[in-house]
Write a protein that binds this DNA or RNA. Structure first.
Lengths: 206, 206, 206, 206
DNA sequence: AATGAATGAGCGTTCATTCAT
DNA sequence: TATGAATGAACGCTCATTCAT
């Protein structure tokens, strides 16, 4: 989140100034990403956040509830950003490129969230898994609609289903959490530019 | 794997005829994929495999060891298949296309393995995580070398690092376990053809 | 409840009009009977009564204190009723019969109290258990004195200790909470008449 | 049980010689009676029995399961004894008297069981509560059938429903756990004789 | 080669009570 | 009078692993 223009996502700090739920959320994000949801005990969590178990269970009904709160935060942020880019002014190709690059950039700035998102989905209750999947679908559909619009206009090739293009692209994006190293030379912006370019190129009419 | 030409991957059956370690391995693959490594107890495992705990600990030193055995099996299979396609006769573009399509097809035929592979890597001991990553890197390098070869020959565009292309492609492939549904209409072969085509298209010189 | 003749058994309502302590008492009686003292959390209690924890702890020093208040209410009511019948005019046999029938009737009308009384006695502090037992003893003694009077007068057989007769009778009465179903056909009055008749019959001189 | 002819009910000892489940059962009976089911922690239980938690959960699936095992043992014993007396030779009146006296005697010899039985029934799962109630009903019915037989034969008065007689009698018996003190002068045999005599007397035709 | 009873540390969660406001 | 966030100890239970047989 360091260089992002987005102020509303709290930096994952353990700052003593923030509220108890906020502290728990940011500490949980860090620990769940570091060692996994199941390997993180509630005791470690509250110790790291500097609160007691009782305080945690005052705000979250379960460890699962805490995990779900992370999902909600991520889903809301991603949808908001996509909508901003998709609804902006300008030619379709450029809007798609900007959105595609931004999701990479944002993902890299919130790698912990991404790692948790795909690694721990199966730890949520079935109902909550469905809720997350439903939100993801809406997100994909918004992205797909841009590609379909380009296909109708003859801007993009239409011999490959838009759905497959989207799935391939987001597969790559979601997998970033597995290998991207923030300490390396490759910035999120540069990676986003490359990924978006490969996407746009792969869509060029033959 | 059913319709594949590859006979060496054991069908994930619980067949009473197979050996104890084989039964454990195939049952573990199914259960770890269904409910996750941590949510699967050793007791459930041995019950499902129809053996006792003592028998399991006779063949595997730990639950972690059983997980690692799954990784070894997957890594060996994937490397073998890639090598076959990469070392085959024929033009580079066709070899790359075939290898890229095959990894999708094979992944779809072994979805349980893929799901476990990326979801449970952090459950292995650090040493074993490193061993797995090392093997993955060799695998990626073999694939990347084909792209680099094409870039040197002018067959592929060279304004995007081969490494980024590979990472993007395999990111999409590895993510299949999160959404691909074997019950749908989309076959592994069809999906592989589309993914490979998008890859080849994205590499066309501008 | 305090000084009234028959309507003194409070309807177990959660009526918004009553005072906070009254509401807590009637809700506690219902919940302790329904799920047991230990299975009822203070949070559930105050939620059901529509007050906050702070309010409850303002009126009752502890959950135990709330339980004891129920005991006090029951003990006072039962003693008052017994005294009324025992001290009334009329032949001893009729007074005993009336008192014996009334305790059944009253018990059936306040089943929740009875259930709590015997099921949760061990949850009170030792001191309070002693206080309750002391009150019960006084109650039994008043009843026993009627039987002893009848034995001295030759009205009742005296080859069985009055104490044993009393214990047997009240055992049966106290156990009503375990099986009596208010929805059935058997009214409290009818049951009281039968129980009292069996008691009087068993006391007839041989 | 000390002086009883019944050998199959294990003395509630903590004897080191008995098996782990037996030790747990007898210790649980003692502790549940002493301080109540909810006030007895699993840790206290296993410490008192000299085993570990793991061992307990190897034999009993839950604390509830341990409680239910106590119920099963009591139900089986009581039914067996009643059947013996009811099916014996001799006149009905004598068989009823013997059975009525024996249940008091046996109850007094197993006071812990009785106390638990009625105090902790609501701690069992609803299914198990139903199972216990069903068994109790069968027990009561066997006893009631003796009274009905006597009523048909004119041996007993028939102006009071047999069901009410049974309920009253067993109410008194079940309540023994609340007050009977084994240290007093009153023996189980003497008490049983008195209770049975009161029962028979109350059934004399008018 | 295989059993399964037993271990013991750790888990997520509950809850009566306190106290600053 | 009343609030409700926070405490902290205890709870029932799980589970990978060991080991005598």
């Amino acid at each position: 989140m360091a260089d992002s223009a987005e102020p509303s996502v709290p930096a994952a700090s353990g700052g003593a100034a923030s509220s108890v739920p906020d502290r728990l959320l940011s500490v949980a994000t860090r620990l769940f990403a570091e060692r996994g949801f199941e390997r993180t005990s509630v005791q470690e969590l509250v110790d790291a956040a500097g609160v007691t178990k009782g305080a945690m269970y005052h705000y979250f009904t379960s460890k699962d509830d805490l995990l779900f709160a992370i999902y909600e935060r991520v889903l809301a942020m991603q949808m908001r950003r996509l909508t901003e880019f998709a609804d902006a002014e300008g030619p379709l190709g450029e809007r798609l490129r900007a959105a595609a690059a931004d999701v990479v950039h944002t993902t890299v700035d919130n790698l912990d969230d991404t790692l948790i998102f795909f690694r721990s989905l199966h730890m949520l209750s079935p109902d909550r898994q469905n809720e997350v999947r439903k939100e993801r679908r809406k997100y994909h559909e918004r992205f797909r609609s841009m590609i379909e619009e380009g296909q109708r206009e003859g801007l993009f090739r239409d011999d490959v289903p838009a759905d497959i293009v989207v799935t391939q692209y987001f597969g790559a994006v979601h997998h970033l959490g597995m290998w991207y190293n923030a300490d390396g030379e490759l910035t999120g912006a540069a990676l986003g530019a490359h990924y978006a370019d490969l996407l746009l190129t792969s869509l060029r009419p033959k």
